[in-house]
Computed example of a mutant assay.
Amino acid sequence: MPTGSVRNQGQLYYADNHWCDQVKKTRQKLAGICGQCLNRKVRVQTIDGHTYEGVVVGHDNTYLHLANTDARFFGPAAITTLVLFELLVITLLI
């Protein structure tokens, strides 16, 4: 349902307008940062405490795509897709 729509009696959840605006700003900021990290190795920590390492192979306004850099894998790299607004820390690895 679009932000600002009239609430329906059957709705179970209705996002707060302030929260929606904040998520959109955060997504936009993170998409820009992810663009700067394209083809670079990063470590990402989510707000739930999960940590991932990989090479940024793509992103859009919703997702970050990391290619797994684990040496145990042979053949095509496994791709991990993370939701931008769930990210807590992105660290560039050298």
Rank of each mutant, 00 (worst) to 15 (best):
G32L: 00
F74L: 09
V23D: 15
D16V: 13
A78R: 09
A71L: 06
Q45E: 11
T69I: 11
A15I: 03
C20H: 13
R27N: 15
M1F: 03
G4I: 05
V42L: 06
G75S: 10
T80H: 09
D16Y: 11
S5G: 07
E53S: 07
Q22P: 01
I90A: 04
Y13W: 14
N68D: 11
T26M: 06
T46I: 13
V89M: 05
A77V: 05
T69K: 00
T3H: 00
A78D: 00
G54V: 14
M1W: 09
G58I: 03
Q11R: 07
T62D: 13
V83C: 08
C34G: 05
I90V: 06
L66K: 05
V57W: 03
Q9H: 02
D48W: 12
V55I: 14
D21K: 14
H50K: 13
L12T: 01
A71Q: 10
H65Y: 12
T46P: 11
G32D: 06
V56R: 04
L30C: 02
G10L: 06
R40Q: 15
V42W: 10
I94K: 12
A78E: 02
Q9A: 04
L66E: 03
Q45R: 15
V44I: 08
Q28N: 03
N8A: 06
T3K: 12
A78W: 02
